[in-house]
Nucleic acid binder design. Structure first.
Lengths: 189, 189
DNA sequence: ATTTTAACCGAATAAATATTCACCTATATT
DNA sequence: AATATAGGTGAATATTTATTCGGTTAAAAT
């Protein structure tokens, strides 16, 4: 018996991300995925029962392996340096994995999404909300509604990363520090 | 000769927006559009040559009739009040026209978009950049790169509006003022 | 070395979707 | 009132795309 090939699986995922980046989930077809991944169409169905399963599985993998896995080591830091480090890592991740960002956004608004996939969404938000609340208790962050604060961070990060990718601007220390300084001025007491 | 029916045209656009809001551009089919708009499929092709033309035309209409048309009367105001008013109107517009926002984002990442449509994108951004530059010359806004400043405003506005819609939170004066106060603290000198 | 099993494949098929068209119908024009 | 013209329609057709299937091959198990 022949085992499944981990490299083929990754090739399928990479092809899917790359194609979605080019013309969105709308433009995604099974034959394009197979061609880009350099495998036969039939082989796709060895790895996934259907297109729907494929995209849901990819989404699950991105969510569990993505930004969430990069913050565990920070929780002991004081609020401001912790926030800076999260800011930096998130920006970096988003700039370096733009196709993944596009895929996740489009997937969330597609008819493919399963109930289970929908559940995976809010975890990073929850972490940030917690951190902001801690800052509020220490009186270093404004006493505004947490959603008002958090959406600034997440919305800005998303938009800035997209802009950097779009204009092919490299993510320098200067950009990180300047942008974080805006964030901090916005939310500090 | 029978004239075209302006109401049907609007019904087609409304149906398209509503369906896109539910399951994205991926879920959009000509028969669903016709059914939702309560017209025959054939009639769709009286108004548009193809699906591609339909969505491009809708995009054009949204772009030209949208946020751009609401700022002409503000250009005489001083920077800070002008920015506040733009902030307010943009938030309001985005909350009240969420389906349009979703449609435009998805369209920009779809294979349907024509070269011409792509050109319509950057106008609002250009206006904001101008306004920020004026503020910098008056030394009331930080001397950071304009993209760093502008993406905070546009990204935050987008995210906050989406969040308000998502959680069905009404856009009160309090929300407007609190969020604008964060913006201003972020970008002021 | 032989057997067994599942990966691998792409042409053939099925399913979904866009588009056409022949036939009505409404309304401007005369 | 009669005519001409373009809107309105949905079943029929064309096109695109997902999925299946019979056959081939590679690797594990014996």
């Amino acid at each position: 018996m022949k085992p499944k090939d981990e490299k083929k699986l990754q090739a399928i995922f990479n092809a899917t991300l790359s194609l979605t980046g080019q013309e969105g989930i709308v433009g995604l077809t099974m034959s394009k995925i197979a061609k880009t991944a350099k495998i036969g169409i039939g082989t796709l169905y060895v790895y996934f029962e259907s297109k729907e399963e494929l995209v849901n599985e990819l989404y699950r993998q991105l969510k569990t392996g993505g930004t969430l896995s990069m913050i565990d080591d920070l929780k002991a830091l004081p609020v401001k340096p912790q926030l800076l480090e999260v800011w930096k890592r998130t920006l970096q991740y988003r700039v370096e994995n733009h196709a993944q960002m596009v895929f996740m956004e489009q997937f969330l608004n597609s008819p493919f999404i399963s109930e289970e996939s929908r559940g995976l969404s809010y975890q990073f938000t929850a972490y940030l909300t917690d951190l902001l609340e801690t800052g509020q208790q220490q009186m270093i962050i404004k006493q505004a509604d947490e959603a008002i604060l958090m959406n600034l961070l997440s919305g800005y990060s998303r938009q800035l990363a997209a802009h950097l990718v779009d204009t092919k601007t490299p993510l320098t220390e200067k950009v990180i520090n300047e942008s974080f300084s805006l964030c901090w001025d916005a939310i500090k007491s």
